[in-house]
Write a protein that binds this DNA or RNA. Structure first.
Lengths: 174, 174
DNA sequence: CGGAAAAACTTTAAGCTTGAAGTTTTTTTC
DNA sequence: GAAAAAAACTTCAAGCTTAAAGTTTTTCCG
């Protein structure tokens, strides 16, 4: 858009008050780390999608949605599902509709607020999810098999800090 | 990992010929690690997609495709792009078509084998990619800002081993 | 009270993605 | 030297995803 202002006014910002914008915008190490992270995730996710499809004729988004609902004994407001899954509300409309058709999920209008939809697992849905979740656990275990306990703990911690870094970068500007 | 309850309930199943089903079906730690990995990736990727869209009206798949082509001075066979990007060939057809229309990519039939398509960045494409890639680097640097050098190196190594584990699980059963 | 704003969705258009089926060209095999 | 098999795509249908716009309901506030 307006790329002109950044260049023009940059010189002025370079005096004391603002931190220098790293002359060599290297970031090479971070990019490589980012790509490796992406590769790990993509490899594992693709395989999990494939097995879910092959073994249960099911999709990962549906599985993820049911996973959210499993923890909520009395169902969950759609907006809350949206927030937890980090997907748009518009996305969920069709997803929930499908699961309702399959008999795995129920959807009711809240009596307190008629704008609100409450979704919950049916008994059948809960049973189906349990079966799939058990296999899912085995798959992840298999994919991570060669990782030592030490690496596991170490990744858990370091990824926690990475998550913090990303989150702080996202909330920072505002 | 000592889930003795599981061991007990499983005992009756353990007639001689059935092989023990790995560990007790716990995998809790692996699942949590997997979910954390997924969260990190999703958070960063969503933000990168958003900025690419906002600042350049461009998509991540197109960016990724151009990133592959940038390293190939003389273009690349479509099948090779497919393998490197880990996406289906059918996916690339439309993607390449778009970039050709934009003037960022050229596509030619190989003279040696008329089934083969060779794709390459145009000069304009190369310039456009450079601009976007620079910003992309800054974004990743920003998102990973709070990560220490030590964590960076540590993640790089441990994720390398994770990648190996996943790869070996994929190629194992054949 | 009553209009404006906000909230919680739903709908829609555009784009990515895949697996499966189809096409064209090359290689293998007998 | 054909027929068969393989390779390298392209096409297609189905599904996920989002941003933006639209609908209904509730809340705010003057």
């Amino acid at each position: 858009m307006d790329e002109s202002k950044a260049d023009e006014s940059r010189a002025e910002w370079l005096d004391g008050e603002t931190k220098v914008l790293e002359a060599p915008g290297d970031h090479g190490a971070e990019i490589r780390l980012w790509l490796r992270l992406l590769t790990c995730t993509t490899l594992a996710e693709t395989e999990i999608r494939r097995r879910l499809r092959e073994e249960f004729d099911f999709t990962l988004p549906r599985f993820d949605l049911m996973a959210q609902l499993e923890r909520a004994e009395n169902g969950m407001v759609l907006g809350e599902v949206s927030r937890r899954m980090m997907v748009s509300a518009g996305n969920l409309t069709a997803l929930v509709e499908r699961l309702v058709e399959m008999g795995y999920v129920s959807r009711t209008v809240s009596p307190k607020d008629r704008r609100v939809q409450i979704v919950a697992l049916t008994d059948e849905g809960r049973a189906a999810f349990r079966t799939m979740a058990d296999r899912h656990g085995e798959w992840v275990g298999e994919l991570f098999k060669d990782l030592s306990r030490h690496d596991e703990a170490l990744l858990m911690e370091a990824l926690g800090r990475l998550k913090g870094s990303v989150r702080s970068a996202l909330s920072g500007p505002q």
